[in-house]
Amino acid sequence: MDAIQKSKIELIKAPPGIEGAGFFATSLDKAVGIARSNSLWPLPFATSCCGIEFMATMASTYDLARFGSERLSFSPRQADLLMVMGTIAKKLAPVLLQVYEQMAEPRWVLSMGACASSGGIFDTYSVLQGIDRILPVDVYIPGCPPRPEQVLDGIMQIQKLAQSETIRRRSSPEYSELLNKYGIE
């Protein structure tokens, strides 16, 4: 029997709450937060070399499936997380914004690499100098391109945001004010 090893898989721990015979009570925020953060469906908006690093992140060595994000959604309507990976030309900006607007709440945005975050080396008339000029960004990943470890770290930061977010945040006046700042809705 010694040959049978204990599984190394770590399951998600239950949130803090009150436990008794036949029941477990916790707040809805925490339960929903755990569910959301461990089944984020990313929409990869990959326009250049950062997208190649993302492929490595999805593949077996780094394996984004360990974080519950293996199901890529190529329809924005079913996606939770918009991953912008690569240079966004000014002509592409309205397309990116339309994709963002088509996503259902709650939605998070991850800006991967120097180009998406700031325009990167492309300080030129044709390139958008950071996607935060047109839509709100939750997490930035630095690097040119970032390594898959950094992408995993970025996804984990998004998971933390999803876990700690109250379910009322998206209907708050502060949130609609944030969107209005970008001219959304």
């Binding site: 325009g119 030129t124 100098q129």
Partner: peptide
């Protein structure tokens, strides 16, 4: 270029940078 651009960017009178 995007349709609402209001100049012709490869003329040397304009800066390359955004």
């Amino acid at each position: 270029n995007m349709d609402d651009m209001d100049y012709h960017p490869m003329r040397k009178e304009y800066a390359l940078e955004d």
